[in-house]
C-alpha cells in the first residue's frame, strides 16, 4: 500500500522539531494522523546579539554564536475528537562569543541544556481527529488552531554569567496557527499560506547579576508561503516579526530600578527547504536573517541557520510497512 505510505510521509515531512524562542518554521502545524510520533533533532547555528535560547538579555554590539541541538518529541493524540499535537522539547549545546567588546564579567563560552518546553496545539477549525483512514482523505483547506506551551527554567543557568542556555524564568506562550491551502491538496502541488500570531508571557528572572528582570509580553507573528517543489520536497519563504518584551531591571535586594530596556523587536526573512528522504526520515534546512534594523540598541540582530532531521512513525502504518518489506 505504497499510496498510504506516501500520503503519511508527505504529511510528516514538515513536522516540527525546531523551536527557536519565537520561531517554529513552516508546515509545523499541518494536522497529523492520530498516534503519529515524531522525534526530531535540530542543529541551530545562530549569530546574534543574544543567546539562541534566551531572549531576556540582548546585548548590544555583542556577537554571540550559538550552537544548539534541540531534541524534540511530538505525538498526535486527539482530545474531544480534535487533532492535538503534544510536544516536548529541550535544547542542548553551547553559546560562545569571541567579542572583545566590554560585556559584563564572565566566561565567553557556556554549554549545557536549555529550558524544557511542553506544549500542545489543538485544532479548533478544519481538522478533526484524524485516524489513518480519515487522514488519508483529508484535504486541508483552512485550519485554525490554538497552541499553548509552557517553558520551565530547567536549563543551565548561572546568575553571574551573561551567556546562558537556560533563562531562569518561566514563560508561557499562546499561539493561533492559521493555515490556508492555496492550491490542490495533492503532493507535488500543495501551496499554503501560514500565519501564526503568538504572545509569550514571562515570569521574572529573579537573579541576573543580582538584578531581577521583568519582561513584558512578547508578541510575534510568523508567516510562511510554502510550495511543493516535488512530491517529496518543498520550499518556504519565511517572515517573522517580534514586538514588545520590554525589560525592566531592578536590584533584587533593594528593589530599586536599575535599567529599562526596549524589547528585542525585530523582523527576519528567510527560507526553508524540506525534503522527505523516505517514509520515516525528513530533512529541513533553513536560513533566516534579521532585517529592518531600528535605532533600538536592544533589537535582536543576527542570523539563524538550521538543519533539522525528523524521524516519524505511526504504529499501524509501520507494522504494515514492515510486513510488506
Amino acid at each position: 500500500m505504497k499510496l498510504i505510505k506516501l500520503s503519511i510521509a508527505a504529511l510528516l515531512l514538515a513536522f516540527p522539531s525546531a523551536a527557536w524562542a519565537q520561531y517554529e518554521g513552516p508546515r509545523v502545524d499541518w494536522p497529523l494522523p492520530r498516534m503519529t510520533n515524531v522525534v526530531g533533532v535540530t542543529y541551530a547555528d545562530a549569530d546574534a546579539n543574544a543567546a539562541f535560547t534566551v531572549l531576556n538579555r540582548v546585548e548590544p554590539e555583542v556577537e554571540i554564536e550559538s550552537n544548539v541541538f534541540i531534541l524534540s518529541y511530538t505525538r498526535s493524540q486527539p482530545i474531544f475528537d480534535r487533532t492535538v499535537h503534544w510536544q516536548l522539547q529541550m535544547p542542548i549545546g553551547n553559546v560562545d562569543t569571541d567579542s572583545n567588546l566590554p560585556i559584563p564579567a564572565g566566561r565567553s563560552f557556556r554549554d549545557g541544556v536549555g529550558d524544557l518546553t511542553f506544549g500542545a496545539t489543538v485544532n479548533l477549525i478544519g481538522a478533526p481527529d484524524l485516524p489513518v483512514r480519515e487522514a488519508l482523505r483529508y484535504d486541508l483547506d483552512t485550519t485554525v488552531g490554538l497552541g499553548i506551551s509552557v517553558t520551565a527554567p530547567t536549563g543551565t543557568y548561572e546568575s553571574d554569567e551573561v551567556l546562558n542556555l537556560g533563562s531562569n524564568q518561566w514563560s508561557a506562550r499562546v499561539s493561533v496557527p492559521i493555515i490556508k491551502s492555496l492550491g490542490d491538496w495533492v503532493p507535488g502541488r500543495r501551496m499554503t499560506l501560514e500565519v501564526k500570531p503568538s504572545v509569550r508571557f514571562f515570569g521574572n528572572n529573579s537573579n541576573s547579576f543580582g538584578e531581577t528582570i521583568e519582561q513584558d509580553p512578547l508578541l510575534a507573528l510568523e508567516a510562511h508561503l510554502t510550495r511543493d517543489l516535488t512530491k517529496d520536497a518543498f520550499i518556504s519563504l519565511d517572515y517573522n516579526l517580534i514586538e514588545g518584551g520590554d525589560q525592566t531591571f531592578t536590584d533584587s535586594s533593594t528593589g530599586m530600578l536599575v535599567e529599562e530596556r526596549d524589547g528585542p523587536g525585530a523582523q527576519s526573512l528567510g527560507f526553508t527547504f524540506g525534503y522527505t528522504v523516505n517514509e520515516n526520515l525528513s530533512l529541513f534546512v533553513g536560513h533566516h536573517q534579521t532585517i529592518a534594523e531600528s535605532s533600538n540598541p536592544f533589537e535582536l540582530r543576527g542570523s539563524l541557520t538550521t538543519v533539522r532531521l525528523t524521524w516519524s512513525w505511526h504504529p499501524v502504518l509501520q507494522r504494515r510497512s514492515d510486513f510488506q518489506d
Binding site: 500500500m1 499510496l3 498510504i4 485516524p131 489513518v132 483512514r133 480519515e134 488519508l136 482523505r137 499501524v316 502504518l317 504494515r320
Partner: peptide, 11 residues
C-alpha cells in the same frame, strides 16, 4: 480490507 484501504477504495 483494512480501514485505510477502504478509504482509498471508496474514493
Amino acid at each position: 480490507m483494512t480501514k485505510a484501504s477502504r478509504v482509498t477504495a471508496v474514493r
